[in-house]
Amino acid sequence: MSTQQQFSLTDAEFAEIQAALESTVRGRAFLRAYAEQNRLVAYNAVVELTRELKEWTERKISDAAEQAQISVLRRELQEMSACIQRTRNEIAAMQMKTGDGNANSRIMLATGELDAIVSHTEQATSNILNAAERILEIAAQLPPEHAALAAQLSEQATDILTECSFQDLTGQRITKVVNTLRYLEQRVHAMVEIWGADSITPTSVVLPTDPRPDAHLLNGPARPGEGRSQEEIDALLAGIGLDTGSLRDGNTDSDGAAAPGDAANVMPPPNGAAGPKPNGTLSNQSEIDRLFS
């Protein structure tokens, strides 16, 4: 059996047998039938191969599309993750503790500064009113021959009194800002709780920095109870052997903190100007007067 299975014809042997078969009618019939049978087998084999090739190609295309989708999804997820991280950092930066370790947020600090502005302007206004009222008293005490001067003094002092109403208006405006800041603070706090940002130390957020070498010493006017009075500073300087003399004539705030000393920047509203006008649909005094005439 093994010799039959392994036996192969040479080209010459094949040609000899083929010629022998073609020499007879039955042999030629056999060859035609054999060729026909082989064509059918070959056709079926080609069909099967084509089907397999088509399936293989479709499978490869599908795999590639799936891979592309997964790649896009992965990239989107990475971008979302980075965005969430940036948001957490931003929120953490808003909540960042101050240099002295206080847990107050920047918004709360800003709110405190505005409250201090109201307090300081109120105190300054009170002092100005004291001075104006004293001028009125002095004008009233002038002798009759100085009546014209007394009238001028009274007029100017009265103007000072009325201009001091700026404190009421700025106070109302600042109160609005403070309320808005408190609202923002609540919203930020809610976001911190949602995102768990209180456990994050912001790394990618670029915080504003002051390049001056003494920036850490520049905190602006002290809030009530935080600063030193001139007397305390004099005592401190005297304690290190410096003769301060009389640096100031008691120009300290009521709370003992050093005064900002920049009152020139506090500008009252123009004389006779209307009140706060956050939008353009408001009345002025002359328009109001027409309503009452």
Binding site: T158, D159, T162, L169, A274, I288
Partner: peptide
């Protein structure tokens, strides 16, 4: 005015007003 105010002054105002 509808509520019955007699006059109305807008802050800031001056002594003459």
């Amino acid at each position: 005015k509808e509520a019955g105010v007699n006059n109305y002054i807008v802050k800031p105002f001056n002594a003459a007003t």
